[in-house]
Write a protein that binds this DNA or RNA. Structure first.
Length: 265
DNA sequence: ATGCCTCAGCTCCTGAGA
C-alpha cells in the first residue's frame, strides 16, 4: 500500500518539469511520494519525458494531447489495467487516465473548465461529468479501494472561494457544478481534504494576475476523493503551497493525501 | 477593464485557461 499520493495541475509539463523535480526533492526529505497524478501536461505521448521519469525510478502512464489537456499517472510500482478517458463518451480531449497500482485503483482527471454557465463548454462539462459518474460506478464496483484525484474545476462550496459574493454563480461556483460534485460524493466517495480541514480560505489555485497568490485570492478546485473502503486508512490531506512560490510556478499547487500503512495499523 | 498573467503554436498575435 502506498502512503503518499499527490495531484498537481502542472500547466505544461515541459515548462514545469524542473519544478516537479524540485518539489519531489522536498517531499523526499519528508518521506517521499508514492503515486502522483498530473494534469495539463499539454504534450503528446511521444514527447512525454519517459526517460527522465524512468531514470528517477518512476513508472508512468500518459494520455496526452498537443497544446491542451493531457493527464499522467506516476507510480513507484508498475501500473496496469490502464483506461484512457471515459467509456461511453466520444471525446477528443485527453482528460482522464485510470490505472491500478500499489493495490489501489487510481483515477487522474482534468475536469473541463466550462468557461461560462451559458456556454457550449459548460454543456460539455455537464455531459463529461455524467460520463465520469458512470465510469466511477463501474470502477467502484470492481475496485473498492479507489482514489479520484485531479483538477475538478469545481468549488465544493463557498468555503472554497476567496470572495463568494463576488463570484456567486460564476464558473466553478454554480449550483449545477456543485450538485454534480455532490453526486460524485453520493457514490461513496469522500473529499479527503475536508476530512481533516474545515477552515475556509484554503486554496489550490490562484490566478496569475493581480498578485492573487500574495493576496490569497484563490479557489480550492483541486481535489482528492477516497472511496468508503479507503476512508478509514486516510490519515491526512493537505495543500502544499510551496511550489506556488517557485520560479515560474504553475497556477495550481499540489494536494497531498496520506494513507496509513496497514503494516503499522 | 472583453484588463490584469501564462502557455502553445501554422509564434511578434490569438485562443484558452480559471
Amino acid at each position: 500500500m502506498p502512503t503518499r499520493l499527490a495531484t498537481w495541475n502542472v500547466n505544461s509539463l515541459r515548462v514545469r518539469l524542473p519544478q516537479l523535480w524540485d518539489w519531489l526533492a522536498l517531499t523526499d526529505a519528508e518521506g517521499g511520494m508514492d503515486i502522483l497524478g498530473l494534469q495539463e501536461t499539454k504534450t503528446e505521448d511521444e514527447h512525454f519525458p519517459w526517460d527522465d521519469f524512468e531514470a528517477c525510478e518512476w513508472h508512468a502512464v500518459h494520455h496526452g494531447q498537443k497544446t491542451y489537456n493531457g493527464v499522467a499517472l506516476l507510480s513507484r510500482e508498475p501500473l496496469s489495467d490502464v483506461v484512457h478517458n471515459l467509456p461511453g463518451l466520444d471525446d477528443d480531449q485527453a482528460r482522464v487516465i485510470t490505472a491500478t497500482t500499489q493495490g489501489l485503483r487510481v483515477i487522474c482527471a482534468y475536469f473541463p473548465n466550462g468557461q461560462a454557465p451559458d456556454s457550449d463548454k459548460f454543456a460539455y462539462k455537464l455531459r463529461w461529468l455524467e460520463a465520469l459518474k458512470a465510469h466511477l460506478v463501474a470502477e467502484l464496483q470492481a475496485h473498492p479501494r479507489l482514489v479520484l484525484m485531479g483538477d475538478f474545476n469545481i468549488t465544493r462550496d463557498d468555503a472554497d472561494v476567496w470572495d463568494p459574493v463576488k463570484l456567486a454563480g460564476t464558473i466553478h461556483c454554480t449550483d449545477i457544478e456543485r450538485d454534480a460534485y455532490g453526486q460524485l460524493l453520493g457514490l461513496g466517495l469522500h473529499d479527503a481534504f475536508r476530512l481533516f480541514h474545515d477552515t475556509p480560505g484554503q486554496f489550490s489555485w490562484w490566478d496569475y494576475r493581480g498578485g492573487a497568490f500574495r493576496r490569497n485570492q484563490g479557489l480550492r478546485i483541486d481535489h482528492v476523493l477516497v472511496s468508503d473502503a479507503l476512508k478509514p486508512l486516510a490519515t491526512d490531506c493537505s495543500i502544499d503551497k510551496r511550489p506556488r512560490t517557485f520560479e515560474r510556478p504553475s497556477d495550481h499547487t499540489p494536494v497531498v493525501l496520506r494513507l496509513q500503512d496497514p503494516a503499522q495499523a
